[in-house]
Write a protein that binds this DNA or RNA. Structure first.
Lengths: 343, 343
DNA sequence: TTGAAAGCGATACCAT
DNA sequence: ATGGTATCGCTTTCAA
C-alpha cells in the first residue's frame, strides 16, 4: 500500500521496544483488564512516548465493536436553532470522549435517504435526530440495536425515544409575560405542524388568553422562518383589530415579524411588543433585542447523550415524555428593558 | 461480547448463502479488483439483499487504511460565518462520499489541544482547519502524511496549504460601492489581527479612499463580534467629524454597529449607510437588510476538499496563495434598495 | 473466473 | 504478572 515511507507505529513496535508482549501494551493502554507491574508499565509508557504511538482506531473499533462516533442529523445548520443543538451536543459528546459525525439533510428526502444510511454504514454507535424526517422509516435505519433518540420535541414519533423542551410551558411564560405588561390584544404567529403533532405553543397562548378573559384573535399560521413572521404580521394587521403584542412561536418567526413591523413604521415595543420562543443566541443582536423563552439546549443535549449511553431500547410508548423547562430571557422587545448596549 | 442476540451479518454469511468464497463477495461489493461472472454476481447481490448485509466500516478501514472521514475544526458554530463553512463543507464532502467529523474549539487552547489530537486518533483521512489555532503546533497534529488545509484565509500560517476569499478585493468592492453612493466620509470598523497577518480589508478601504482623494478617518479597531461593531460606532461618532457611511469588516461587526446606530437614533441608510463583509445568511434578516460582500463559501469548500483529495504535500511557501473572488450583495443598508419584504 | 489464505492492528482469554 | 495467540471483518495476492 504505502511505499518506502515509515509506517505508523503499532503496538508491536511498542512491545518490542519495551521488551514486553503486545498483550501487556494493551493492558497498559486500556488500563486493564489485567493488572501490570508498575515497573513494566513505566517501560511501556516510555516506549509509547518515544515512538509517539497512537492506537489505531479502526482496529480497536473492529475488535470492540464500538467506534465512539455519534451520528447527528440536522435539517440545516444556517439556522441558529440547530447550531445551538449542535454546539450543545458537541460539548456533551466531548465530555464523554465521543465524536460527532454531522449530517445535514437540507430537509430533502433524497439527501435524508442518502446520509442516514451512510451514518449507519460508518458504524456510528448511536444516532441523534435533531429533525423531523420526511421519510419516517429512516428513523429506524441500520441495526435495531443502535440506540437513537429524537432531540427537539417530546412527541413520540418514528417509534424512538424523544425528548424536548416543554413548549407548552414556554409559550405560557411568553404569553403571560405579555399579558403582565398589560396587553389585551396579543396575536400569535406560528408555523404549520403535521397532523400528528399537537401545537403546544399555540394551545398555551390560547389557554392563557381565555384564562384571563382576553379576546383570542385568529392566529396566523404561516411558516417557521423569517418569511413566516413577515407574512404573519401582514395577516394580523390586515383587519381593524390590530394587536398590541405578538407572541412569535420561534425566534426565526420573530425576526421576520419585526421586519414587517419596522416596515409598517411601528415601534417595538412601544406600538407592538414581541416575545418569541427558542432563545437562540442571535436574538441578542436583533433590533430591538428580543425577549425570548429559551430552550435548555445544554441540558437537553446532555440528556440525549445520557439516554443513548443508557442503551435503553425501551419502547417509546411505554416511556414518559421527557420535557425540559424553558426560561424567560428578558430584553427590550417586550418593553422590559431599555435598549441598551450590547453585552 | 454480545449475548444470544443475532450478530450482524458478515461477508462470510453472504458467501455461505451465495455459495461462493468471501473473496468473490468482496469483488462484488467493491466492484473489483477482479471481475465476477454475472451469474455469480447475481447470487451474491441476492444474498446481500436477503441478509441485509452492510460491510463493517472498521474492518474495511483497518484493511485499507482509510476511514473516509474528514476532520473539521471550527472555533464556534453559533456564529453564522462558520455555519456557512460547515454547510458548504458538508455538501462538498457528501459529493465525495466522505463524512465530516466536527469539532468546536470555542477558541479555547485547552479544548483545541484536546479535540484536534482526538480527531487524529479517530483516524480522519484529512483535516480542515476553519480557524486560527491558539497553539500553532496543532496544525501539524498527527501523521505528517495526513493532508490538511487552512480554510478561511489565504495567509500562509501554520505551515500548511491555505485558501480563502480575496478580502482585499471584497473590501474594495464594499468601499467603492459606498463611494459610488456619493459618500465622502466613510468610516471603517474592524477587529484586531495578529501581527503576522496583513489586514487586507482595512488596507483596501484605505486605498480606495486615497485613490479617490477622500479623507481617511481613523479606523475603529475593536473586535470581530457585534460588541466590536457597537463600540466601533461609539468611537466613530465620538468626534465632530462623523461618517455618513461605514464599512464594517464583518457581518457580525455590522450587526453590532447597526445596533449602536439605532440607539443613536440614526436612520440607516438615510443618515448612515452600512456595508459589510462576509455575506452570511443572517444578513438578509437584519434591520435593515445588510448590503454585504459575500465570500464564495461553496467554491472555497469545494476547493478545500479538492486540495485534500489531491493529497499534495507541497510546502505551502512554494504555493501560490489561492484567493476566491467575493461578490456584492445589494440590499437596503447601503441605500440601493427599498426596504421591501423578505424573500 | 474463483478460492484459499495472509494479513491490517488491537483485544482479551488461556496459559504459565 | 506476563506471554502466546485466536479473533474481529475485510481486502487482495497468489494459485488453481
Amino acid at each position: 500500500m504505502s511505499s518506502a515511507e515509515s509506517r505508523p507505529t503499532t503496538r508491536a513496535d511498542v512491545a518490542r521496544l519495551a521488551g514486553v508482549s503486545t498483550a501487556v501494551v494493551s493492558y497498559v493502554v486500556n488500563d486493564g483488564p489485567r493488572p501490570v507491574a508498575s515497573a513494566t508499565r513505566r517501560k511501556v509508557l516510555d516506549a509509547i512516548r518515544e515512538l509517539d504511538y497512537h492506537p489505531n482506531p479502526s482496529a480497536r473499533a473492529l475488535k470492540t465493536g464500538s467506534t465512539g462516533l455519534i451520528g447527528v442529523v440536522v435539517p440545516e445548520i444556517l439556522n441558529s436553532y440547530f447550531s445551538e443543538f449542535v454546539d450543545a451536543i458537541d460539548v456533551a459528546a466531548r465530555s464523554q470522549r465521543k465524536s460527532i459525525l454531522l449530517s445535514i439533510t437540507h430537509e430533502d428526502s433524497g439527501t435524508e435517504a442518502e446520509v442516514i444510511p451512510n451514518l449507519v454504514r460508518r458504524g456510528v454507535d448511536s444516532l441523534i435526530f435533531n429533525c423531523r424526517l420526511v421519510n419516517a422509516e429512516l428513523y429506524q435505519a441500520g441495526d435495531a440495536r443502535t440506540p437513537r433518540v429524537l432531540l427537539d420535541r417530546a412527541d413520540l414519533v418514528g417509534g424512538i425515544p424523544a425528548l424536548g423542551a416543554d413548549l407548552g410551558q414556554g409559550a405560557r411564560l411568553a404569553t403571560e409575560h405579555l399579558a403582565g405588561h398589560g396587553h389585551t390584544r396579543i396575536g400569535y404567529i406560528g408555523g404549520p405542524l403535521p397532523a400528528d403533532r399537537q401545537d403546544y405553543r399555540r394551545q398555551s397562548w390560547h389557554d392563557v388568553l381565555t384564562e384571563r378573559g382576553l379576546p383570542v384573535p385568529a392566529p396566523a399560521i404561516t411558516a417557521w422562518r423569517p418569511t413566516g413572521g413577515f407574512e404573519g404580521v401582514r395577516e394580523l394587521f390586515a383587519g381593524p383589530e390590530t394587536p398590541t403584542a405578538i407572541f412569535a412561536a420561534s425566534d426565526q418567526i420573530a425576526i421576520g415579524a419585526m421586519h414587517a413591523l419596522h416596515q409598517l413604521g411601528l415601534r417595538i415595543p412601544d406600538d407592538v411588543a414581541v416575545v418569541s420562543l427558542d432563545g437562540t443566541a442571535e436574538t441578542a443582536y436583533s433590533w430591538p433585542p428580543l425577549t425570548t423563552v429559551r430552550q435548555p439546549f445544554e441540558a437537553m443535549a446532555e440528556a440525549a447523550l445520557a439516554e443513548l449511553a443508557s442503551g435503553s431500547v425501551t419502547a417509546p410508548t411505554e416511556r414518559e415524555r421527557v420535557l425540559f423547562p424553558m426560561t424567560l430571557l428578558l430584553r427590550a422587545s417586550c418593553g422590559c428593558r431599555e435598549q441598551e448596549g450590547l453585552g
